[in-house]
Amino acid sequence: MDTLILTLQLFTSLPLNKGVEVSDERLIRSVALWPAAGIVIALFEALIFGAAVHILPVSLAAALALLGELWMTRGFHLDGLCDTADAYFSSRSRERMLEIMKDSHIGTFGVVAAISDLAFKYLLITASKMPLFLILGAPVAGKMVQGLCMYKANYPRESGLGKSYIGRIPLHIAVISAVFGASWVIITLFSGIICPGIGSRTTVAIWILFLVLSLCFVLAWLFRRRMEKAIGGMTGDTLGAASELIEIFYMLLIVVMEGVL
Rank of each mutant, 00 (worst) to 15 (best):
121 K>P: 03
161 L>C: 05
22 V>W: 10
208 I>P: 01
100 I>M: 07
245 L>P: 07
182 A>F: 00
203 T>I: 14
120 F>G: 03
181 G>V: 03
46 A>T: 02
14 L>R: 05
24 D>H: 07
159 S>M: 06
102 K>T: 15
53 V>M: 00
78 L>A: 15
212 V>G: 01
35 P>G: 06
145 V>Q: 05
231 I>H: 04
53 V>L: 09
224 R>Y: 11
12 T>Y: 06
181 G>R: 00
242 A>F: 08
110 G>Q: 05
169 I>M: 07
154 N>A: 13
198 I>Y: 13
168 R>P: 07
20 V>K: 00
88 Y>M: 08
149 C>G: 08
239 L>D: 08
120 F>E: 03
113 A>N: 08
160 G>C: 11
182 A>L: 07
109 F>T: 05
138 A>K: 05
43 L>R: 04
46 A>Q: 09
112 V>H: 07
137 G>V: 12
78 L>N: 01
229 K>A: 15
256 V>R: 03
131 P>I: 06
3 T>I: 15
48 I>D: 03
260 V>E: 04
19 G>F: 00
178 A>C: 03
190 F>E: 06
83 D>V: 15
39 I>N: 03
256 V>M: 13
195 C>H: 13
17 N>A: 03
68 G>N: 06
183 S>Y: 06
57 P>C: 04
7 T>W: 02
26 R>T: 12
22 V>Q: 09
193 I>S: 15
202 T>R: 14
99 E>P: 10
21 E>G: 01
71 W>M: 12
236 G>K: 00
57 P>E: 01
166 I>W: 10
148 L>Q: 11
70 L>W: 03
42 A>G: 00
21 E>R: 10
137 G>R: 00
31 V>N: 11
123 L>F: 15
119 A>I: 12
147 G>F: 04
34 W>Y: 15
3 T>P: 02
140 V>G: 07
59 S>Y: 11
36 A>M: 05
84 T>Y: 11
102 K>G: 13
120 F>L: 15
69 E>V: 12
167 G>K: 05
225 R>T: 13
